[in-house]
Amino acid sequence: MKEELTPALEVQSVVKNFRRGRGLKRKITRAVDGATLTLPRGELFGLLGPNGAGKTTLVRCIATLLIPDAGTIKVLGHDAFKDSLYCRQRIGLLTSGERTLYWKLSARDNLNFFAALYGLTGKARDRRIDYLIELLGLKEVERDRLERYSSGMKQKVSLARAILHDPELILLDEPSLGLDPQFARFIRQFIKDELNRKQGKTILLTTHYMDEADELCRRIAFINKGRIVNVKTPEQYKRDIPHTEVLEIRLQGQPDAAPLQALPGVERVASDFKDGVTTLKVVAPRAEAVLSEAIEHLRKGGRILGIDIKQPTLEDVFLYVTGTSLGADTAEHKPVAE
């Protein structure tokens, strides 16, 4: 196969288990369960799933930070574990969380250090760092210690670090997590316009923000409980449930939502409890038809705060396909017999 035709990333039947505890208390959890993906060069691909779905574990396997228990991963046609140095040179990794840089050092010092790790030295390093500092709007603060930066500014430096060596494949794990809307918008635009459209980079982006995946990605894989459920374009997903509406009911407390699933016409029900308020999402062909019976069931469970009927979003499609809300935490999802 010619090099240009080789996919940027091929993930084949990857399984990753984690073992915790010892002896009789030992528990094995399957974090990634047979994941298979192929990313052609130049694609901006989304991995969408709730917290604990296995997104970060899969990204760490691709970045050679974890060794899968089964399956193969190829980066630009090279096996990620047999040829790990080659693959690491071609992967740019942005992990979630702020503490991936040295806070006591400046942006330039951080980038100088990581440049050396990626084999960039001398004038080539200086030119590249100057270029990225300018591109990401860090010129004014490049000599300040990172501890004085806001979260958004730190994320810009992390992004600069991830693309410092001009990698072919960029892995972005929750790149806008915890950022204020202004920085989140900047990061999203930078990913789409600069990295993907202008520079033609292949990008694997994990997120549990439906809007982010919908806005940025050409194709999206739904991942839930370690399994990749579907891979489609956002439009295809939305077409999958064309004659469906979403009845959204917000209540105080935690009512039992199970009886709603048995109502005629109801296809899916998801419940998300946060700050004393439960948000129930009932997927049905005609939301109005199930409204009165749903209210009847829920009235005893707690005070109803609001009711809304919506057209399905990508988030609702995720719920429809997986039965899990994107806001849910599904960590520790799948115990495996040893």
């Binding site: 970045a63 080659y86 690491r88 040179q89 992990t95 503490r99 991936t100 990581f114 790790l117 990626y118």
Partner: peptide, 14 residues
């Protein structure tokens, strides 16, 4: 403890 171990281990050096 800095939080940087994964970032440095992802680099293409032994």
């Amino acid at each position: 403890m800095y939080g940087t171990l994964e970032a440095v281990f992802a680099a293409p050096v032994p």
